[in-house]
Write a protein that binds this DNA or RNA. Structure first.
Length: 373
DNA sequence: ATGTAC
């Protein structure tokens, strides 16, 4: 951990972890906002639109623009009924299609069964979305803590599904409800607007979690199997916390709660992802840990940097042997493993700072993004 | 990131 400003700005990264300068400038700028008590950069910090991605903030006020338009975005890990000893990868790839479309099943029934409140965004429920979102079938690669692994409900003999998605248009509407008239200005806690915003946000967070569950079910419908939730954590949210009898608002942007069970730290599609157990020492990082490898290149650079050396066919197959389903060519390049930092650096930094213990690692087999051009 | 924008 590097103390950029004593008790005010902390960076949970080692000296050898390359961190883009712009993201540190953003971290500093954010720390100067009115009411900001503590700003923490995670080891996967990189520049974002309203502030850095991969950061947690403890603040007296509420700043929606720091969270952005995808509140509730997160990752869910599901155990599937597919045996890991019987891979039918080619057959599965053929069967996986249409996940970007409105669900074919009876949504009303599903929403009732799963306690999802109806909203203007029902049609998007169960769809993956764009950007870095995906649904990925994976295989346990290594178990570091057998006891926690088993207690979590995982089993080496079965494949798992990792779903990274968010709140789709619902979060966008929430974001705009504040920023269209108030921009980057804060909400004052206990004001009607603040209460209303947080209430709406909490609905959005629930919706996004349900979205991941339905994506998992739709994915497994196509492979004639089922899925069982192991752990789900969002990485874009604002929650209230109490510290020495005072109320604060904990903002997490591309950072995962460290006080709510096991967490999947996402690699790129060409590397392992890690299931970790946050430690009680995470108080020092505002009860937050990194959400993934973190971008190395911004989206606009990727195709230009990679196209000469790697074609579509190359990128559809990763070094780790997994297959990527992504018919959108720009997106295929934007989300190439090369565009991300090394997940092992992020994991090692967190271990060395005492933030996490490893439970298991997972190797991707099929990463579904979109069949639409 | 987004039922994507002048």
């Amino acid at each position: 951990m590097i103390e950029i400003e004593k008790n005010k700005i902390l960076l949970f990264a080692s000296e050898k972890n390359w961190v883009e300068g712009d993201s540190l400038m953003q971290l500093k700028k954010t720390s100067e906002l009115t009411g900001m008590k503590l700003s923490c950069g995670m080891p996967d910090i990189h520049p974002g639109k309203g502030g850095p991605v991969g950061a947690s903030f403890i603040c007296e006020l509420i700043y929606p623009h720091l969270i952005g338009n995808d509140a509730g975005c997160g990752a869910g890990l599901f155990k599937t009924s597919l045996r890991s000893g019987r891979l039918k990868t080619e057959k599965w790839i053929k069967k996986l299609k249409g996940l970007e479309n409105t669900p074919e099943r009876d949504l009303d029934e599903w929403m009732t069964e799963n306690n999802v409140e109806s909203s203007d965004h029902d049609k998007a429920l169960g769809t993956i979305g764009g950007g870095n979102h995906f649904a990925e079938l994976n295989k346990v690669n290594e178990i570091f803590d057998q006891k926690i692994f088993e207690e979590a409900g995982l089993d080496l003999k079965y494949l798992n599904l990792l779903v990274h998605s968010g709140s789709r248009g619902y979060g966008e509407v929430l974001y705009r409800s504040h920023t269209s008239k108030s921009g980057a200005s804060p909400l004052v806690p206990d004001s009607d607007d603040a209460i209303n915003y947080i209430e709406k946000q909490n609905k959005v967070l629930k919706w996004a979690k349900s979205n991941r569950k339905l994506i998992a079910e739709r994915f497994m419908d196509r492979l004639n199997g089922d899925s069982q939730l192991i752990t789900d954590s969002n990485h874009n949210s604002i929650v209230s916390i109490k510290q020495s009898e005072k109320n604060y608002w904990l903002h997490r942007k591309g950072a995962v709660p460290a006080d709510d069970g096991l967490v999947m730290v996402l690699g790129s599609r060409g590397t392992l992802s890690y299931l970790v157990k946050p430690t009680n020492d995470c108080e020092k990082s505002a009860w937050s840990i990194a959400h993934g490898a973190g971008r190395k290149w911004n989206r606009g650079n990727c195709r230009g940097r990679l196209e000469k050396k790697w074609g579509v066919k190359d990128l559809e197959r990763t070094d780790i042997g997994s297959t990527v389903i992504c018919r959108n060519k720009d997106l295929l390049y934007e989300e190439a493993p090369q565009a991300y930092k090394n997940i092992d650096m992020v994991i090692n930094d967190m271990i060395n700072d005492g933030l996490i213990e490893l439970v298991a690692s997972f190797k991707p087999l099929i990463t579904y993004k979109t069949r639409k051009k």
